[in-house]
Write a protein that binds this DNA or RNA. Structure first.
Lengths: 126, 126, 126, 126
DNA sequence: GTGGTCTAGACCACT
DNA sequence: GTGGTCTAGACCACA
């Protein structure tokens, strides 16, 4: 369920954050599902509980999960009004990557196809 | 020409690296153009020369620029054979961002249009 | 274990890089073994930590070691698919040296024997 | 005749040194042949005369050429008693490269063949 | 504790 | 003038 790669340049807590996001996006974790407790996950991944805490805190701050003290962490409802700022931020991250692809000499058509595939694939999982 | 954001989470040298890449991609810096000298850029950005060096070294190691000791750093010729590994890496960075867009509820068609615009825009600069 | 030669024309960080490579090649440092921490090695060699960092970073970028922030640097698994470019580069370094030997008047047979000995000796350590 | 690569990590003067050695080794420049004058070569390569001077000085110090003031630089007689120290030094440079080849997983037999080819090729040119 | 980044300031080799 | 290396010492994020 969770996969960590110690050799990655990403820090552990960041990998956990991204991992959770992916699980939520993929629908593996549905809204109001309970996440593993800090202790559980800490044991599962043989990772310091502080690290898990930090990941959960970040997820909560960015609105992916909510915490009910004494009960645990739960996946937030997916919002139906997409936040334009968030969308803008994501597109701004994508743009330089696309430009780099073009610069590397990848034909525009190939890029379009690759991106289309992503859009279709991701869309089906929900 | 170069813009640093102190508040950014990106380290300074990384911002310089990305900045240079973008200038090269945008064609502002053409192959064999000379980059500002370490000391010049250091003064321009009021950043320590070591930090600039680190950025330039990284750019050199990843093949964006070459350096002639005693003369300066210069933009590399753009390679004609796109590296499949590099392309893969870029696409792998884009994918989670696209999926997050979908998750936020952005319609597939809107995403497709936004990406298409990027592809067309970037294509003109070369 | 680590030996520096201040008189050498090689820079300190480069000596450290080469030293590490040799320890890895000789099998003294096995895959996933931990290297001395930056500060440790810095103290051992009475060399500035920055210099050690630079060496470690270079080793990481060329794939000899990987680094887990907060834990330390570790020897990479040896890759099983030898990189043809890397091999070519090594042979290209050897060639002029061999030619110089021939030019000095060393008989071809002596050279062959000397090189054979190296090949056999090195082969045993793995 | 002389080929410089500004993009190389080698310094210009070092490239000239190596270039001369190669020409001498290959027999293109025979003993007592005159080298181009500093000014000539400087013009040929569009390189600062100081740089040429430095290269010639180095070649003279290591015994490859000799200078007759007022006349120019000439290729030394090849010595028939190979200097054991020089040979040792060359072999010591080759050894780590061979070990790295082995470490990369190149079969001993392949290495032996590649080296043999060098020995035979170099031997014929004299 | 670990690695990573940054500054200030020095010295060297090369062009 | 250029890049390259090195020191001394600081601060940060992560585990």
């Amino acid at each position: 369920m969770f996969q960590l790669d110690v050799k990655s340049r990403k820090s552990i807590y960041e990998q956990i954050v991204d991992n959770c996001k992916e699980l939520i996006i993929a629908g593996v974790l549905a809204p109001n599902d309970k996440l593993p407790s800090v202790r559980e996950l800490s044991a599962m991944l043989t990772v310091n509980p502080n690290t898990i805490q930090k990941a959960y805190r970040e997820l909560e701050q960015s609105g992916w999960i909510y915490t009910v003290s004494g009960l645990g962490c739960f996946v937030s409802e997916s919002r139906h009004a997409p936040d334009p700022l968030q969308i803008r931020a994501l597109l701004d991250k994508i743009e330089p990557l696309v430009r780099e692809l073009l610069f590397l000499g990848v034909p525009a058509e190939s890029i379009r196809q690759a991106l289309d595939k992503m859009i279709r694939k991701g869309g089906g999982s929900r």
